[in-house]
Design a protein around this nucleic acid. Structure first.
Lengths: 333, 333
DNA sequence: TACAATGCTGAAAACGTTTACCATCGCATG
DNA sequence: CATGCGATGGTAAACGTTTTCAGCATTGTA
């Protein structure tokens, strides 16, 4: 039996309308009325039911966040940046994660209906058309790193293609001719873009390629490293599609007594904190992970405030090469 | 003008009651009714308004999560474990973070009223009595690493005291006599507990102590390391109250050409991923951060399902010493 | 044929708010 | 003294559901 606005009204000897007005500061009430309401509310420890408020106001001041997972520093970084932006605007966050596939994400999306004013969606699966379809017309959405062929929703992406291209270009420029690539999971949009950038840069530099498949995890990077060690000759450089894989690969090399970067260069992607701490510190691609969430929330909040201002189409966030010691800097003979 | 249950009812030529029954599977409806409802709902792309459902069901299938911050691997690990447990139970999460103080947290708590079936609270501030007061009697809560003098709410804690004690004991056992400690922020409950454990173990081992103040951040650890270097003589060992500070300290030593663990041992607390990657790999205290969130949510969900079964009092999660290479193993002379 | 039992359905109340609209009151003005 | 008016507070509708309860139709039984 939680205390409701009626209880407060009874206690204050007023109508619920006056209580509402006094508490919200909307409408005019006399000073005596206000203080009577405030006192009654305090005495009863009244806290308004936000569900009921949301229902009638048709606003929940809450944004939904759909993430594929919460695992690892990458996602937590994104969630954190969303959170920061949300707090600044006084918004709440309803999070839902670990959607193995677009179907599950679509279900999560439905269950947010009415509870949120808008949704931030990150679903880098190639088969996420279904999810896109599920986005109700009536609820604003912003896509993050999520392919949207038909370009129907505003989106924001990391420049995975450009980042990978720049990295391979750099590796070639410092003299590496044989550059292997450890990919992310094949059905992942970001992994696919990085692979595409790798291919293009390899072609442009007329370098030699070699593809190994991974899944963004440290273990898969380690396994790829072992596979490279087992082959006849090591490449000049290994470019992993994620820092975690680069670290796994590094560990495999260290274990085998192969020196990095003297014998082989290793580069990653993401610039997670651990990239700085590993020995040798990892050359990698810094994505504006801290920006993407904040920016996406900003776009969403604006769309919610003024639906007419919604701009579909995709913003792309620049990446930045971070040169550390894992790739060597001197020209190879 | 979102489509409501009324629209579906009109389309199907039935009452809203029947639509509700058919859609939820509650109550009995004929097969023809059900299919007519299903078809109408599909045609109109009807999605129920969860706010209205929550209001009348008095259940939102959502839990609130109050965290002091989302920064760093520690909190993201906790949030992730909460999320995993929540998903398993089909629950949503309403998160709210970055509460500089208990007052702000209390405000966040109020704004969750009605929206959530229960709250998970983590507020390791010494002055969080105010927050505890703000917890409405009517909403179940579980405290994580949050002091509750009067023991009014169920809680779960990491054994910060025991973990610190065990670490210092270990350092003393392998021969370190002069053991410095870099503390966390002084108003933090966990930091205080770790300090308490340190003191007790120092006394028990009749070792020499030395206290430096930090704030859990890498930078503060680095500064503490510099301070130690500036002093006459280095201690035998430095025990930092967080891995991030241990890493910062390690970096300061590396920069100064001081060898770890040969000249000085360094230990941390938390066992974050980066602890494994740093050179030398960090001896640290592993907390069951992946457990605490999941366990807390489990307790909360049970309390929600059966308020009578609520058990106040605090569970404590064991910690585990993780011996790596940063502390040496051989007895000192 | 009348009546009880059974199976579905619909009308309406309820959840806790906000807010449009109306009534009242005190006061100044004619 | 009647009228008008601004200020304030109350009544009731509305938000979109779920659920109780009563009613209706159909069937089986006497």
């Amino acid at each position: 039996m939680p205390v409701t606005i009626k209880d407060v009204a009874r206690r204050a000897g007023l109508s619920i309308a006056s209580v509402s007005r006094a508490l919200n500061g909307t409408g005019v009430v006399t000073e005596t009325t206000r203080s009577r309401v405030l006192e009654a509310a305090r005495e009863l420890r009244y806290v308004p039911d936000e569900t009921a408020r949301s229902l009638i106001r048709r606003r929940s001041d809450t944004m939904g966040v759909l993430l594929p997972d919460l695992y690892g520093e990458y996602f937590s970084e994104i969630l954190r940046s969303i959170d920061r932006a949300a707090r600044q605007r006084g918004l709440h966050l309803l999070v839902s994660s670990s959607h193995g596939d677009a179907k599950e994400a679509a279900r999560a999306l439905r269950s947010m209906n009415g509870r949120v004013d808008g949704v931030l969606i990150m679903s880098p699966f190639s088969n996420c058309g279904e999810l896109i379809e599920a986005i109700s017309e009536s609820i604003p959405a912003v896509l993050m790193n999520t392919p949207d062929d038909r370009g129907r929703w505003p989106g924001i992406q990391i420049d995975n293609y450009g980042g990978a291209y720049a990295m391979v270009e750099h590796l070639a420029a410092i003299g590496h001719r044989h550059i292997a690539h450890i990919t992310g999971p094949l059905d992942n949009y970001e992994a696919a873009e990085r692979l595409r950038g790798y291919h293009a840069a390899i072609r442009a530099a007329a370098a030699n390629s070699n593809i190994l498949h991974g899944d963004f995890s440290e273990t898969s990077g380690y396994l790829a490293g072992r596979a490279l060690l087992a082959a006849r000759a090591l490449p000049d450089a290994v470019f992993a599609a994620s820092d975690m894989m680069a670290i796994g690969c590094l560990l495999a090399f260290r274990e085998a007594g192969v020196e990095v970067p003297r014998q082989v260069a290793v580069a990653g992607f993401d610039d997670i904190p651990a990239a700085r701490y590993i020995t040798p510190p990892l050359t990698t691609v810094r994505t504006q992970a801290t920006e993407i969430g904040a920016r996406a929330l900003e776009m969403l909040a604006q769309t919610v405030d003024d639906p007419a201002a919604m701009r579909v189409g995709c913003e792309t966030l620049r990446t930045e090469l971070v040169i550390r010691n894992s790739c060597g800097g001197e020209m190879k003979p």
